[in-house]
Computed example of a mutant assay.
Amino acid sequence: RAALVAHVVRGLVHAAGGVVVAGRGPVVRPVPVPGVELLRSLGPDAARWALLQPAGHDLPDLDPSRLLSQREDNPLFRVRYAHARTRALMRNAGQLGLAAEPQPESGAYDHPAETGLLALLADHPRTIEAAARHRAPDQLARHLVGVADAFFRFHDRFHDDCPVLPSHQHKPSAVHRSRLALADATGAVLAGGLHLLGISAPEHL
Rank of each mutant, 00 (worst) to 15 (best):
L182M: 07
A100L: 08
H170K: 14
D58C: 08
L140H: 14
W49A: 10
V19T: 06
A93C: 05
G17R: 12
R153G: 13
L118W: 13
A16Q: 03
G97N: 13
H204A: 00
N74F: 05
V175W: 13
L144T: 13
S65L: 15
V33D: 09
T86K: 01
P26G: 10
A99L: 15
Y109V: 02
L144P: 11
A174G: 14
H195T: 03
E37A: 14
V21P: 05
L42W: 02
A84L: 01
V31Y: 08
A119T: 04
H143R: 07
P54C: 07
L144G: 12
L197I: 01
V145I: 02
R48V: 03
D149P: 03
S200I: 00
L182F: 03
G193Q: 07
H134M: 14
V36K: 07
L52H: 07
R87D: 02
K171S: 13
H83S: 04
R48K: 09
P64N: 06
F152A: 12
V36A: 14
L96D: 12
T127N: 08
G56W: 14
H124K: 08
E101H: 10
L144Y: 10
A122Y: 06
M90C: 11
R1V: 13
H204S: 01
W49H: 10
A130T: 15
V164D: 07
R177I: 03
Q139C: 06
L117T: 04
H168Y: 06
V189E: 00
V13T: 15
H143N: 08
A201H: 06
F152D: 15
A50Q: 03
V36N: 10
A113W: 07
F151C: 01
L120P: 09
R177A: 11
G94R: 12
S167W: 11
N92M: 10
A181F: 11
H143Q: 11
H14G: 05
I128S: 02
Q103W: 02
A131I: 07
A113E: 05
R87N: 02
A185Y: 00
S200Y: 02
R179P: 04
A185C: 06
Q70W: 05
L76V: 12
L144Q: 13
L194C: 00
S173G: 14
P32V: 10
P163R: 12
D156Y: 06
G192T: 00
L51Y: 02
L205C: 00
G18R: 14
F151W: 00
L67P: 08
G43C: 05
P34G: 12
P54A: 08
L52S: 09
V19P: 01
G198V: 01
A2N: 14
A99P: 08
A148I: 03
R177L: 03
L59F: 11
P137W: 15
G94I: 07
R1G: 11
P60I: 05
D61P: 12
G146P: 02
H159N: 01
A183R: 04
